[in-house]
């Protein structure tokens, strides 16, 4: 195996993992506040179609990402009103949002199905990109790849180093305690949910503007669900989300390379295709097998409605 192949596997791995990281980290923040939004798939679809449409009309992919962010946030606002203000069931509402987003995006996106966007060029970081092998694959990437890393850094700092992050976790652990000492539980949950939606929208727009520059109904193809599962298997820890997402992307790409290489191995392609799922689950379960850390990191009030006493 020569270095070129390692380089292109690494490059593709980073790209494949990026939308998962962005969406999963957004979901992680929402879930840390105690809100379980299963609508990621629908929010991503809306982000994808909004991102595509705006990029198509303006020619500016960044406006597209912004549009995707707004679309995702609006979808999650709808969800937040139902579950936080009207006290609807989070699981049922999230599932409905997922289906609704799929349908609405198809409807809105009808006129864009035959359109094509130009591919966005990669952004090369000087010096770092000159490192052999990892340089070109890590530092000559789609701009959103760097954004995902920045998002990761920001979230780690926010959750574990900032006062607001502590507050967010407190709300997710025990909304009644947080409320009793005077914190606006519902408002914090609103903000966390909107952030989760916005990130799902960005992840969606990454798919339709950067990853495969096209819009087709159903193009999210289950990535929203994978992101949600990733958060759970990563036991709500940002670093494990990062590892899980790249592992998933990496195994996916690697098995494509194995298939295309013509190596004389007798493994059915169906098994190879399921490897990314298997590998990610096994690795994350193993690194998260300590029951105490799971209990420590899982937000206790996840999925439960909370109505503050007046």
């Amino acid at each position: 195996m020569n270095l070129d192949i390692i380089e292109s596997i690494l490059f593709a791995t980073i790209i494949a993992g990026t939308p998962l990281i962005i969406v999963a980290l957004g979901q992680l923040i929402a879930e840390k506040s105690g809100v379980l939004n299963l609508g990621a798939e629908g929010m991503m679809a809306m982000g994808a179609v909004a991102g595509f449409a705006v990029t198509f009309h303006t020619g500016n992919p960044w406006l597209g990402v912004l549009a995707g962010m707004v679309a995702g946030a609006l979808m999650s606002l709808l969800f937040a009103v139902v579950v936080l203000t009207l006290m609807g069931n989070q699981v049922a509402t999230g599932l409905a949002l997922s289906i609704f987003g799929g349908g609405l995006s198809a409807f809105v996106g009808k006129p864009y199905e035959s359109e094509v966007l130009e591919a966005v060029p990669t952004l090369r970081i000087p010096l770092l990109a000159d490192i052999p092998v990892i340089g070109p694959s890590l530092f000559n990437q789609q701009p959103l790849v760097y954004l995902a890393w920045a998002l990761f850094g920001g979230i780690v700092w926010f959750l574990y180093k900032s006062r607001s992050g502590l507050l967010l976790r407190a709300v997710g652990e025990s909304p009644s305690s947080a409320h009793s000492i005077g914190y606006p539980v519902i408002r914090i949950r609103y903000m966390a949910t909107l952030f989760g939606g916005a990130m799902a929208g960005v992840g969606g727009s990454f798919l339709s503007v950067f990853y495969t520059p096209l819009w087709v109904e159903g193009m999210v193809a289950g990535r929203g669900w994978i992101a949600i599962a990733l958060v759970v298997f990563a036991t709500w820890r940002p670093f494990r989300v990062l590892v899980g997402a790249y592992l998933f992307g990496g195994v996916m790409v690697a098995q494509f390379f194995v298939q295309g290489s013509g190596l004389d191995i007798n493994i059915p392609s169906q098994f190879l295709s399921s490897l990314p799922y298997l590998a990610t689950i096994i690795v994350l379960v193993i690194i998260s097998r300590d029951q105490n850390t799971v209990r420590l990191n899982a937000p206790v009030s996840l999925g439960q409605s909370y109505r503050p006493d007046a």
């Binding site: 070129d4 192949i5 292109s8 593709a12 494949a16 798919l207 990853y211 495969t212 096209l214 087709v216 159903g218 193009m219 193809a221 990535r223 996916m252 790409v253 494509f256 390379f257 298939q259 295309g260 290489s261 013509g262 392609s269 169906q270 190879l272 295709s273």
Partner: peptide, 23 residues
């Protein structure tokens, strides 16, 4: 060279497989 993506429709995977074949 053949790559099976085990899906009739997934633009992301189809693209990934194409890039793999070309590289």
């Amino acid at each position: 060279r053949v790559i099976w993506v085990n899906s009739w429709f997934d633009p992301g995977k189809e693209r990934q497989a194409s890039m793999t074949l070309m590289s």
